Simulated scan of single mutants.
Amino acid sequence: MMKSILRETTPLSEKDCFMVFSREKTEFDFPLHVHPEYELNYIENAKGVQRIVGDSIEEIDDMELALIASSGLEHGWFDHKCSGKRIVKEITIQFHPNLLDGQLLQRNQFRSIQVMFAKAAYGVVFPRDVIERVKGKIYDLATEKEGFFSVLKFFELLHELSQGKGLRVLSSRSFHKENQRFDSRRVEKVVRFLMANYTRNVTLQEAGDLVGMTQVSLSRFLKLHTGRGFIDILNDIRLGHVSRQLVDTTHSVTEIALRSGFNNISNFNRIFLKKKGCTPSEFRSKYHESKFFL
C-alpha cells in the first residue's frame, strides 16, 4: 500500500476571500499534494513540465492554466523535461469552496460557473486562446492592492473562464471519488449503473433497458450529452479503477486489468496506452516518483 499524499496547509484564513501567490522559479520541487481550497494555477515558460492531476499525467506546453475544485484530488507539477535555467512564472489563486455559496451558484447569472466547478472537481485545463484572453486579468489580480476591487476582478475572471470553449477535464471520475454530477438524469443513471457493474460484461442493451431507450437512441443521447460513446464511457470508468489500483496497490498489471473488467490483456494494454500515453507499468512508476510522503 502506498504512503499518504502530502496534505498541504495553506495560509488562506477563514476571513480571506482568496489569496494570490505570484513567483518566479527555476524548478518545480513541491510534492504531489491535496488541500481543501480550490486552486487556479497559471504557469508560463515551462514547456516540458509534467502535470499530474488524479490519474492524468501529461506534459504541459509553454503556457498552462488549470483549475482544481476538489479537496481530495491529488495534483502537482514536476520538472520532467523542463530543465536548464529558464525562469518560470507561476501565479496561483487559492480560494475557499464556499466563496460562492450554494444559493448564489444556483442563480441563473452564476450557472456557468457552477457547471465549470462541477467539471473542475476532476481537474480541468483551459485552451490557449482562453488563457491568452484572461492572462492580463490574472496578472492584474497578482498586483491589485485594493481588496474589494480584487474580489470583483476575481469574480469577473471566473465568469470569463466559465464562458470559454474547449475546457478539458483531466482525471477519470472513477479514479477520484467525488460526488458525481451530471446535467442529465438519464446520463447519471447510466453512469452509476456502469460504475456499479464495470467488472462484468455489461451491454448497451442493459443500459438502454434501464432508462427506457433503444440502443441506437441511447448511443446518440450519450454522445450528445457527454461527447463520448457507450464503450468509451465504460472503458474510461474501468481505466479509472485500474489507475487507482496501480497507485494504491502492489497487484500485478494483469490482475488489476482482469479485476477491472478487461478480459483481453492485449486489448487492455492498447487502450491504456492510447488513453494515458504510457504503459500501465510506466504510469505506476511515474506516480511513485512524484514524491509521496506523509
Rank of each mutant, 00 (worst) to 15 (best):
M2I: 12
K3N: 08
K3E: 13
K3Y: 03
S13C: 03
S13Y: 00
M19G: 02
F21A: 06
S22I: 01
R23F: 05
E27R: 15
F28P: 04
D29W: 07
P31H: 06
L32K: 01
V34R: 12
L40Y: 02
N41A: 09
E44R: 12
N45H: 13
K47Q: 11
I52Q: 07
G54V: 06
S56G: 01
I57G: 03
E58R: 14
E59S: 14
D61T: 11
D62P: 00
E64F: 15
L65D: 05
I68E: 00
D79M: 07
H80F: 15
C82E: 05
R86Y: 02
R86I: 09
E90Q: 15
I91P: 02
I93Q: 05
Q94E: 11
L99G: 00
L100S: 00
Q103G: 08
Q103D: 15
L105S: 01
N108R: 10
N108G: 14
F110H: 10
I113F: 07
Q114M: 03
M116V: 03
K119M: 09
A120F: 01
V125F: 08
F126V: 08
F126T: 04
F126E: 05
P127G: 05
K137D: 12
K137V: 06
K153A: 10
F154E: 04
L161Q: 06
S162N: 06
V169R: 14
S172L: 00
R173E: 06
K177S: 10
Q180L: 14
D183I: 02
R185D: 13
R186I: 07
R192E: 12
R192Y: 01
A196M: 06
A196S: 15
N197V: 08
R200Y: 08
V202L: 15
V202I: 15
A207L: 07
D209N: 14
Q215S: 11
L218M: 03
L218D: 04
L218I: 05
S219E: 14
R220W: 04
F221G: 00
F221S: 08
K223T: 11
T226S: 06
G227K: 00
I233S: 01
N235Y: 11
N235E: 15
N235Q: 13
D236Y: 10
I237N: 01
R238Q: 11
L239T: 05
L239S: 02
G240H: 07
H241Y: 14
H241F: 10
V242D: 01
V253D: 12
E255Q: 09
E255R: 12
E255M: 04
R259H: 12
R259M: 14
G261S: 03
G261W: 10
F262T: 14
N263I: 04
N264V: 09
N267H: 12
G277A: 11
S281F: 01
H288V: 01
H288E: 15
H288T: 01
E289H: 15
L294C: 00
